[in-house]
Structure formats: structure tokens, C-alpha cells
Design a protein around this nucleic acid. Structure first.
Lengths: 240, 240
DNA sequence: CGGTAGATTGAGCCCAATCAATACCGGTGG
DNA sequence: CCACCGGTATTGATTGGGCTCAATCTACCG
């Protein structure tokens, strides 16, 4: 019954439109991945995007599970982490709006490599790996966006290793603050986009260590009240 | 003097042929990057490959220097590392035969992101970034190889973060041994391909810490004599 | 047989993890 | 508006892992 199928197609299209609202769409095209695409490639990706929402602490997938999608964050934050055999967990990456994750499964790989959990209420775009692989074969744009995305990602991950191995807790925090404040001199103010415990994990610290790092930065002119952080002198902070 | 220039060109061509000998060529096509290419793409890459050799401790490039090439290791080992402002250095990656590095500059970037130093006598293939960018535009194969290479690289780098954050020194060493011995049970023997100090850096440890880790693994049936390591029971080692 | 670089061992220290207790904040419902 | 509650953050005390420095030991090479 072709008419039936046609109707079905129409219904799913309607669903998609309902779920992929204008707001989501706008966020999506500012994503690190999609923002690089030309109009036709962009349309193809929009076409196969699947929006889904998660509540805080929802687990998206676990390490070792069969993988079918990669993701872009539209709003909220996602924690990527691994467990050791004692059950202790360590964050590998924190993904916020615009970030893409699990895209390293694109060339190959049928299992997720880490656990992923929503750190708060979160909306994501999901892209079927198979279909994107197929698109990348046709659209040079998409292959290029993948390259760009992987490369950016690799850089930040190598930076992370270097920071872990070279810097103390206060230095890591100072570095985070410096890379997240607009001004490049004088006083500045930052509002953390997420809980401190999440920042701690991102920096490879226990929450207590982050607290102590903040309080040790007080002498460098850093004042913390809730999620807002005042820096009296950005240049002074660079000396840490 | 055109004749003079021509003569010069001829000399460098001869040099190239001399330097890209059959042995190098064979190693090159087993490289993680080139091994994935079809015959025409392979030929193009061979065409622009530039072989160069370095002695132990030679610095290939420094962080922040203008970048023109990425590299594949044919023989020997290269240390990629960063410095903190006190001059202390931390390894980000150790590259051995078949490994490719600085390839994350391909989509974009005109400065090297870390220091690179030959850890021993080393021969490398160098590829001009501009020319490979151009090739990637034409040959889909090359774009795919880049994607694959970046993806592999990203995986191992994320693994590295997880290991750094989750595992103690003896666990890291045990993990290294387990991933580098062929057998999956019973006794095994490994020969380190490089100095212990290099392994220490690779695992994010000071050389002394590696020593202590080895000696703490004695009770797990690990015997170290020079570069050869005996493991009495691989399964026992997994319990660490 | 020295010489030299690498590897090991010991002692002391420092940073950050852990555990436990308290303080704080942001919501919710009276 | 206030009181209360649960989750978050801070602070203190302690532990432990790994770094540093220094001394010794080993292996390799001329």
C-alpha cells in the first residue's frame, strides 16, 4: 500500500517538524559540526537529525554498548566518563551547547567508548552513524566538517593531557577562568554555566580540591559567590 | 642561471630517490596513514613524501613555531611534549614506527601545538600540509584516511586521559604490558622497544616512579632485566 | 678498565584524594 | 514571607601516591 507508506512518511515528517522546532534548528546550525557546512550538506544533516531530551542524571549510553548515533548538544551539559574496576568514575569530557561527541565512531567502531550522562536537563540532536557515513561519501563538505571536528577535538584532548600532567589544581582553575573571560586585562566577571562539581570533574579534580583551589586563588584576587566569580586583575591571575 | 637551477632541481630529485629507498618505501606504506589508501592516492602521497633523519635528542620543532608539515615515523621514536612556565616538561605522546603526528593541523592551523624531539636516531616522512590539503580535496581516499587517522588518535588520547585519572602507577604499567604482549593467558615475555625513561614519560610518570611500579609488580610475577620483561601469568596481572 | 648515561633505591615532601562533619543555597509548601 | 528540606559546597583531618633530590648501582662502549 504505497499510499499508506506515504501517509506514514508524512506523519514522521510532522513529528520531526514538531520536535525540531525553530529554536532547536537555530541552535543546531550554530553547532561546531553543522556550522561549517554549505547549504545542501546542512539540509541533509538537518534531515536526519533526531532531537531528544534527557533529564538530569539520565544515562545516554554506557561504555561497550552497541553504538548507532553520534550527538550534538543543543542545550544543557553531558558528562562523558569512564569507570575503573572499583567503580570510581573519572570524567573524560564535559560537552556543552554546540559540542559534538561520539563522532570518533564515524570511520569505524560499533561500541561506545565511554559512558555518557546528562548533567542537567538536556536536549540533544542525534545522527545515525550509518547515514552520516553514507552522506560523507557523497558530500565533500561533510567529510571536511568531520575532519575539522575531530581535529578540534583532538587538540583540546591533548591540551587536557598536558594540563593534567603539568599544572596544579589552582593553576588549572586559573587557566579555566582565563580562557573563559572575555577581557584580556583588568577586572572581569564570570558566571559558571554549570555546577561546581561538574567543573571539578572537567578539570580532573575532586569537588573538595576545586573548593580549595578557589580559596587559594583568593590571594590572587578571585572571589567566588555561588556561580559568579569576580577577578580583580586578569593579568595578576596569569602569573599563577 | 637556469641551467644551474635545473641542475639543483635534478640533484634534489636524485637525493629524494636516494633517500626514499625501497626499505623506507615499504615502511611508509605500512604506516597507519598510507596503509589505508588506494593505489592512486598512495602514489600521490609517495610523490610528496620527504624523508629526513634525526639523531637522538634533535628537536624537530617547537611549540608555537610556524608549521609546514606533518610527519609519519618510519623508524625510531619521537617524543611530543609541552613545557610549563617553570621549564618542567611533560610528554603528550610517544610516536613509534607507523605513527603519524601533527596531522591535526591539516584542516587548519599554522603553528605547531607542542615540541617534538627525536628520542633516538629516527627517520621520518614529512608531508607538506598545503599539498596534502589540496590532495584531500581531490582524492576522497585521502580525506577518509585523514578521518580515520584523527579518529584513532583521538581514541587513544581519550584513553590516556581516562588512564591518567583512574589508574595508579602500577596499574598503568600493568595495562601497558597487557596491551603489548601477544598471549592472552599464561606466561609471556616482552622486549621494550625504547628506554624506560621514555616509557615513564608515555605513562605520565617520573622515571623513578616507573622503577618503583615495576618492583611493586614483582609480587604479581613481573620480572624486569634490562629491556626484557617476563610475565609469569598474564591473567594474574589483569587483577592489578 | 675507566667513563658515562641510564636505572634503581632511599628519604623527605607536597599535592590532592578520601572521609566526615558542617555550612550554604535553592527550591517547595505551609 | 518564612520554615523546612535535600542536594551542593565548604572546611578540617588524615592518608597515600608520586615527585624531587641525592646517592648508589648497572650496563654499555670506547
Amino acid at each position: 500500500m504505497p499510499g499508506y507508506h506515504y501517509g506514514w512518511g508524512a506523519v514522521t515528517t510532522v513529528n520531526k517538524i514538531l520536535r525540531l522546532n525553530t529554536r532547536d534548528k537555530n541552535t543546531l546550525l550554530r553547532t561546531s559540526f553543522l556550522s561549517q557546512l554549505g547549504p545542501t550538506a546542512m539540509a541533509s544533516m538537518m534531515e536526519i537529525a533526531n532531537i531528544s531530551t534527557y533529564e538530569a542524571r539520565d544515562v545516554l549510553f554506557r561504555e561497550g554498548e552497541p553504538s548507532d548515533c553520534f550527538y550534538s548538544v543543543l542545550s544543557g551539559y553531558v558528562r562523558l566518563y569512564r569507570l575503573n574496576k572499583d567503580g570510581r568514575e573519572a570524567d573524560i569530557r564535559i560537552c556543552g551547547p554546540g559540542d559534538t561527541f561520539a563522532e570518533c565512531l564515524l570511520p569505524m567502531g560499533d561500541k561506545y567508548l565511554y559512558n555518557a550522562q546528562a548533567a542537567e536537563n538536556t536536549t540533544l540532536a542525534r545522527f545515525d552513524l550509518q547515514r552520516v557515513r553514507a552522506l560523507a561519501e557523497q558530500e565533500k563538505d561533510i567529510a571536511k566538517a568531520i575532519i575539522r571536528c575531530l581535529s578540534d577535538h583532538l587538540r583540546t584532548t591533548m591540551d587536557c593531557i598536558a594540563n593534567d600532567r603539568l599544572q596544579t589544581a589552582p593553576q588549572r582553575v586559573a587557566h579555566y577562568l582565563l580562557t573563559h573571560c572575555a577581557t584580556d586585562g583588568g577586572p572581569a566577571s564570570i558566571r559558571l554555566p554549570f555546577q561546581k562539581s561538574l567543573l571539578a570533574g572537567k578539570l580532573g579534580l575532586a569537588p573538595e580540591a576545586l573548593s580549595r583551589a578557589f580559596s587559594s586563588l583568593r590571594r590572587a584576587g578571585v572571589t567566588v559567590r555561588g556561580r559568579t566569580i569576580q577577578i580583580s586583575d586578569v593579568n595578576a591571575l596569569r602569573q599563577i
